[in-house]
Amino acid sequence: MASEDIQQPNTPSMAGTSGASGQRLSADDFARRFRDSWRVLWCIAAGELGDRSGAEDIVQQAAVVALERLDDFDPSSNFLAWMAQIVRFTAKNEVQKVRRRRTSAADPVAIDASRSDDREHHDHRHAMPISRAGNLLDDQAVFDDHVLTALRSLDVVARSCLLLRVVLDSPYKEISLVLGIPQGTAMSHVDRARRALREHLLARQDRPAGGASR
């Protein structure tokens, strides 16, 4: 968690304008502030990606970008907010790149086969999840997969809000600052995201074992 006081961020510019105060952050200061901030940045990256794998790379890529754009940053403004925006841009770019790489020709046979695979996969999952009392019946890994699936179905901002709140116990003031949204909106996102996760888990529990395809 960043130890610095939460201030309003300067508007992060990716276009190479000078910092408003005309001062430049020193390398040591950058390293120190980065060390204070990486946990929040990592959570934002994980929220954007919907996964923890890749989050570390995104934060490091963002650090490289930030170092190259250090002249843009006004040291009197909020470092965390500035870095958070760079992390979000970097992660969005990465997600788009991956999406483009995944685009492939639609072979009807392949599509049909993958649908069939999906069905079997889902049937196996529906048979598992949690008992009436919410107890885990099968292995934890499958339960975690359900939660991740539900998490990925959320809006990116809601996902980031939830991860910052649950994983880091970030105050809403900080969530609001790093994601550039009002505090009340951050709180609504967290509540709605939590509700969506539990409804997803309970809905799976209520589905008949074996799935509808049999």
Binding site: A46, I130, G134, L136, F143, D144, V147, A150, L151
Partner: peptide, 18 residues
């Protein structure tokens, strides 16, 4: 009770996964 337990487990799962 099921809602509360699902909610707690989802939080624990998020801690594990992230």
């Amino acid at each position: 009770a099921a809602m509360m337990d699902a909610a707690r487990r989802a939080e624990a799962s998020l801690h594990r996964s992230f």
